[in-house]
Amino acid sequence: MKRIIPHPILTLVLLVMWLILTQFTLGQAILGTAVALVAARALAALEPQTIRIRRWSPIPGLFYTFVVDILWSNVKVGRAIMSRTTPPSGLIEVELDTRDRNILAIISVVIAAAPGTAWLGWNPGNQTLLLHLLDIEEGEIWEETLKKSYLGRLKEIFG
């Protein structure tokens, strides 16, 4: 199993992408499977580390929190831009107790998608994340959200 399909999730995503871009027919499914398998082997030759998902159950809750946070942040920043005086900005440092690349990648997607926050740097030495916030008043809220609802659940997912 592991020898034939080195990256099962990537293979599946590539197959679905192939089918979306072409048509949902049997012929395209076979061709797409072949392409996905070759691409996954190519990646396995480059990068030995594979993603291992330990638990699937926190994923829907995490996705829900993500969507709600993004919507809330979009509306908040939109209001702040259109109002006469924009709130004072500032920097916060969030200490994230992890070295896992996948967790950091997903957190960076969250931070980039939420308009109120911007990623400035990650210090691997003391594992702190430097964030710029449009509204510095929300600093504690964001720190709490990132630590509790994202980092906690991501650690459960990736183990």
């Binding site: 979009n74 920043v77 939109g78 980039a112 926050t117 911007a118």
Partner: peptide
């Protein structure tokens, strides 16, 4: 959303603050 993000990019006064405006059009 795209228009508000663009106005933000034009209005905000500091680069780090302007960095927030494009994610409004990239996500919303």
């Amino acid at each position: 959303f795209a228009l508000i993000g663009a106005i933000g990019l034009l209005r905000l006064d500091d680069f780090y603050r302007r960095l927030h405006a494009p994610s409004l059009s990239a996500s919303g």
